[in-house]
Design a protein around this nucleic acid. Structure first.
Lengths: 130, 130
DNA sequence: TTCCATGCAAAGTGTTTGCAATAAT
DNA sequence: ATTATTGCAAACACTTTGCATGGAA
């Protein structure tokens, strides 16, 4: 556990709006100014393969990193500014299949389901109408 | 309507496995060998903004293009080979909210919901176990 | 000493853009 | 003649990789 990894982990910890690698880099620099972007990428990839963090691809932009891996949740993407936040499952009107998913899926071995709501956040809606 | 656009449209038409821009380029070359990749990108972007095609971002890989914009459906992504195919809604065990979505979503104006199942396709499962 | 993580810079992917040549009205 | 579209190549955004350095066991 190096200072760099700790810095990256601290940035992610407790976030509910998900960050890009560059945003993580920026934030991590506040506590560790000499950390490099490559190290942030490497660390994020390690965290992802350890299952500490989940990579989510939002629209066409950069990959975002979601530290909330324990509570099942959906995502809410602002297609205007790219912000991606969590949505509690019970607020979404969608229920995930509880049991094993039906075999209709062509013999796939399923590992998960992602649900992403797309829309325009209040801030963007306001700035468009101005 | 130029030959290039027709070639791109023809490639996409009727596909149920979604293609990357490069795959579209490759396929379009079969009928129009001189078509350029840039034109494929331009055309795909136009089709997308006209609503004839939907861009979907699969994992970290290239963007994929989904010509099936009329029938609501989910997606099934093989995280091993990157293949993305349609799933009929009724085969998924997930029901999309029918009415207006609850106001719990922080005042977002919703434009859609994407549901993506992740898993490993039979072909990849077989080649892993070999 | 041995090892691994870092930082930098270069290379790699995927996508967009500037511009001259071309084709259509 | 005017306008829009193409192809090419260069630029661009994001991510990964190679390699020399430096710290920890």
């Amino acid at each position: 556990m190096t200072p760099q990894r700790r810095a990256v982990a601290e940035v992610l910890d407790g976030e509910n709006v998900h960050l890009s690698a560059e945003a993580v880099h920026l934030a991590a620099r506040r506590t560790l100014p000499e950390i490099s972007l490559a190290t942030v990428y490497n660390t994020l990839n390690e965290l992802a393969s350890m299952g500490e963090v989940k990579e989510v691809s939002a629209g066409g932009g950069p990959r975002l990193y979601d530290p909330n891996v324990d509570n099942p949740h959906h995502h809410l993407l602002c297609t205007s500014c790219g912000d991606l936040r969590d949505v509690p499952v019970e607020a979404s009107g969608i229920e995930l299949p509880v049991g094993p998913v039906p075999g209709q899926l062509d013999g796939f071995v399923l590992t998960g389901v992602d649900v992403t709501f797309r829309g325009v956040c209040p801030a963007c809606a306001a700035s468009v109408s101005v």
